[in-house]
């Protein structure tokens, strides 16, 4: 109706355990130290693209509004530049919190529709699990092919550029003995992560 939307949050919308679960991830313990000063959003170069600024994400996580937090763009826009961590007056591990939220979102299969970053993460993860290394060009082709093949076609000029500067390689990089990595990783398990099967 004329673009009017109803916004209200009932207390039953909150997940009382969410905040503690995130704070239990090492690096995220200081989440409840936040005084909401906004320094993180002020310094984050990507905050102007986010639907929820980093400060809002901390606030909503602390309050327990899990659905809002796991479905926002913010966590996938974060490039882990750590500018916020270095400026935060309460020394909160904001980037670590973003990672914890990313892992949680991947596990629950929740992210904004069509957002390429989670798809990239999954492809990356699978490649490393199998081969132990990634090959940049192959990675881009395989993930864009999945998420956004029109863009892939649109990047033909860049492809040509790379070819002419002899940086275009479709060789699949791999470890000599990927088994050595797989055996290490097989016994290491995250309570908070892992791709949803």
């Amino acid at each position: 109706m004329y673009g009017i939307k109803r916004h209200i949050r009932y207390d039953s919308d909150r997940d009382n355990n969410f905040s503690d679960e995130i704070m239990a991830v090492p690096g995220c313990e200081n989440l409840d130290h936040c005084i909401q000063c906004g320094t993180c959003s002020g310094t984050c170069p990507l905050s102007i693209y986010m639907d929820l600024t980093p400060r809002k994400v901390i606030n909503l996580t602390r309050a327990g509004f899990k659905d809002d937090v796991l479905s926002c763009h913010t966590i996938w826009l974060c490039s882990s530049c750590y500018a916020c961590v270095c400026q935060c007056p309460r020394e909160i591990g904001i980037t670590d919190i973003m990672y914890a939220l990313k892992q949680r979102a991947m596990r629950e299969g929740k992210y904004p529709k069509g957002m390429p970053t989670p798809v990239l993460a999954r492809v990356f993860y699978n490649t490393v699990s199998n081969r132990g290394r990634i090959s940049e060009i192959r990675l881009v082709i395989s993930f864009l092919g999945r998420a956004h093949w029109q863009r892939l076609i649109g990047m033909w000029k860049i492809g040509l550029n790379l070819m002419s500067s002899k940086r275009f390689s479709l060789k699949a990089e791999r470890m000599d003995r990927p088994g050595e990595l797989q055996s290490v990783l097989s016994v290491i398990n995250s309570p908070n992560g892992g791709v949803r099967k």
């Binding site: 914890a100 970053t117 990356f124 993860y125 290394r133 990595l181």
Partner: peptide
């Protein structure tokens, strides 16, 4: 010898401990 990928941002988005 036989080093593996560091994981970059992408791997850490999926599984912290690994």
């Amino acid at each position: 010898d036989n080093w593996n990928c560091c994981g970059a941002t992408a791997y850490m988005s999926v599984d912290e401990m690994k």
